[in-house]
Design a protein around this nucleic acid. Structure first.
Lengths: 210, 210
DNA sequence: ACATGTGAACTGCTTCACAGCG
DNA sequence: CGCTGTGAAGCAGTTCACATGT
C-alpha cells in the first residue's frame, strides 16, 4: 500500500462515508458522481472530498466527475476491503453477543471465527452460528488460525490482561469496547469505542449551551 | 456554563479520561495528582493536560499539583454530570437491548426512561426494569416527560425519519448507532458511533503497514 | 463550460519553554 | 525547588482559489 505521507484518521472515516454512498449509487446504477454531490451527502465540502481522494491518486475526470464503480472499487482497495479479515470477539456478555450478531449478519469482509468467554455456562453455545469458546483456548486456536482483528467486550479490569495475550498471539488490530486506556506496542492499532465518553460529550454539549 | 471559546471535541474526550482516573484515585484516597501523572495514565502529555484544564480555569497549586477530589468535582461540573439526564432508547433489537442493559447498570447520571420499538412482539416487555413502549407513543410520552438525550439503535433506513420526530419533540442530543449521516438543526448535537467505520479504519491500518 | 487536482492561505490543536508562585 | 499556567512556536487538517484538462 505504501502511503507516502501519514493519513489522518478523519480522512479514513470520510472515505468510509463516501464508500457507503457510492455503494448506494452503484446499486441504483448511477454512472458518475461529482465531488460536490458526495460532499453534500457526506456532510462535508467538495474541496475536502477532492483533497481526501488526491492523497491516494487522481481518480476523476475533469469536467465530468468520478466513475461510481471505479471510485467505489478504488476506495475498497484503499481501505483494504478486498479480502476477508478474520475476527475474534472476546467476551460473550450482552455487548459481545450483540456484536457477534451485528458482525455476523451485516458486515461483509469481516468473518467472525469465534467468541471467547470464561463463563462456563456460555462456553459451547453458539450465537448466529458462531461458537463461544473457552478463553483459555485463545492461544491454541490462534496458533492454528490466527485472527487479524480482535473485538474486546470484556469488563475494564480484565481488558489490559486480555490485550497482552492478544498481542502475544500476533493480533495487530483491536476494537476496544472497554472503558480502559490500553497499552500496546506501536505496531498494534487500537480503536476505542467508549459509551461513557460519548454520553459525557453529549452532556457537555447540553450543559455548555447558554 | 459560558465557555469563552469553542472547546474542541478532543479536549472533552480527554477530560472524560482524566475524570475516570481521578475517580479511581479518589476511591483509593489519594489527595493530589500532578499533570504528569494524569498524562502518563491517559496516554497524553503533561502540557496537554494543563492546557485542557486551563481552558476552564486554574485548578492546581504550583509546586504541588491538583487536589484529586476538587479536580474530579470540577470536571464533573464542566461535563454537566451534576444532574440526571433523561434518556430514551429508540430500537429494542439486539443493539438496543444491550444498550439498555449497559446504561441501566453502569452509567450514573443517565437515567433511561424507556425503550421504543415498532415490533408488537417486543412492546410491553421490560429489559432490566426499563419498559419497551410503542414508538407511536413517543411524542405523547415526550410531552409528559421530555427526554434530554435519545440513543438511536434502529436500521439506517429509518434513522432520519426517527431523528426528525425526536427533533420535533425537542431532543437536543442524539447518540446515533445507525450507519447513516443524519441531518439536524445546528442546535442539536449528534454523536455517531459506527461499527463499520471503525472496522474499516482497522482494515486500513492493517493494509497500509508495509 | 465544467469539475478536478493542488499549491497557498488559513484555522485550530498540540507542543514547547519559561515565567510565576507556592 | 517543583509544578502549574500560558504566550509563542510548530504542526496538521481544512478551506480557498485557480490553473488544468476534457
Amino acid at each position: 500500500m505504501r502511503s507516502v505521507k501519514r493519513i489522518a484518521d478523519s480522512t479514513i472515516r470520510r472515505l468510509s462515508v463516501y464508500l457507503r454512498f457510492l455503494e448506494d449509487f452503484e446499486s441504483r446504477g448511477l454512472a458518475t458522481i461529482s465531488s460536490d454531490e458526495l460532499a453534500r451527502r457526506g456532510g462535508t465540502t467538495s474541496a475536502q472530498v477532492r483533497k481526501d481522494l488526491s492523497l491516494f491518486g487522481s481518480f476523476g475526470k475533469r469536467g465530468l466527475g468520478y466513475s461510481v464503480p471505479e471510485l467505489a472499487s478504488r476506495l475498497r482497495e484503499i481501505l483494504g476491503l478486498g479480502r476477508q479479515w478474520k475476527v475474534v470477539i472476546i467476551g460473550a456478555g450482552k455487548i459481545g453477543a450483540a456484536l457477534v450478531q451485528y458482525l455476523g449478519l451485516k458486515q461483509r469482509g469481516f468473518r467472525v471465527l469465534a467468541a471467547y468467554d470464561s463463563d462456563s455456562s456460555k462456553i459451547g453455545k453458539t450465537f448466529e452460528g458462531i461458537p463461544v469458546r473457552d478463553v483459555g483456548h485463545l492461544e491454541r486456536d490462534a496458533r492454528k488460525n490466527p485472527p487479524d482483528i480482535a473485538v474486546l467486550a470484556v469488563p475494564s479490569d480484565n481488558a489490559q490482561a486480555v490485550v497482552n495475550r492478544l498481542v502475544a498471539c500476533g493480533v495487530k488490530a483491536i476494537l476496544n469496547f472497554a472503558a480502559a486506556q490500553l497499552q500496546v506496542p506501536s505496531d498494534v492499532t487500537v480503536k476505542t469505542v467508549n459509551m461513557a465518553m460519548e454520553l459525557e460529550g453529549l452532556s457537555f454539549a447540553l450543559t455548555s449551551r447558554d
